[in-house]
Design a protein around this nucleic acid. Sequence first.
DNA 1: AATTTTTACAACCGCTTCACC
DNA 2: TGGTGAAGCGGTTGTAAAAAT
Length: 250
Amino acid sequence: MKRGPWTPEEDEALASYVRLEGEGRWRTLPARAGLRRCGKSCRLRWMNYLRPSIKRGPIAPDEEDIILRLHRLLGNRWSLIAGRIPGRTDNEIKNYWNTHLSKKLIGQGIDPRTHKPLPSPSAPSAVAAPAVYVIPRHPPRPNPNPNPNMPDGCWTESSDHDQLIDVNAEAAEAGERLEPDLFGVSFGEDNIFSSFLDSLIGDGENDHINGDTPPDDEQFAFVWEKDLEAHLVLEDNAHEQFTGDPDAGI
DNA sequence: AATTTTTACAACCGCTTCACC
DNA sequence: TGGTGAAGCGGTTGTAAAAAT
């Protein structure tokens, strides 16, 4: 069984076989394709390198922005994040995060795991953030009857984004003190994104991610897209509110 | 120019989830 | 309901290239 970097000949053998026979049955694929690799290695090579839909080249600034935002929402859920960036693989996103973005955030005094300011006695940003944040109690809910003509199709008629809460007040009730959060979001057990994340990952309906959207799930995918877009807008608004800078990046 | 160190990313490993029986 | 195999996921490692010494 061969290991290590793939040769162009192996790539060609794998790619032509998958093009002919389709993906799947990875365990038996190497024998059928005449490769001395394990099925797992073949699958990984196809998924991360050979698939025609994979985008080559450096990560663009807008892609980087999405990665940062989604990582703040989702954490190290690389496949979910990659599912939002066409042509990029979870491995690529993960590598880019570990080699570029985490260092970039640290350089900005931000903890890449929590997206909160790193503890530093001389870091004014950690104390400049307001003690009370206003965030929506509920994330946007998918509209059961989305109207494609409405740009805000993910919101229910009685929109939840007007329902605001005082995070510290709730934390005080729970007997805890929230740390100032530069971006106005908190990842507690009952945070604002919990049900939203459930909608992403909790019921197995996230198969549309990574391009697996079945045709009859298009409506769900549409709602999901709008849902996330609305969240990103909310984040921008919240961030602007805390910093006073509408153009401030993450 | 030679050597060492750092960086970037491809590939691997172990675990979990899911589907099927 | 438990067993099994396939596939997916995220953390980690290996290695080639680039940068630094």
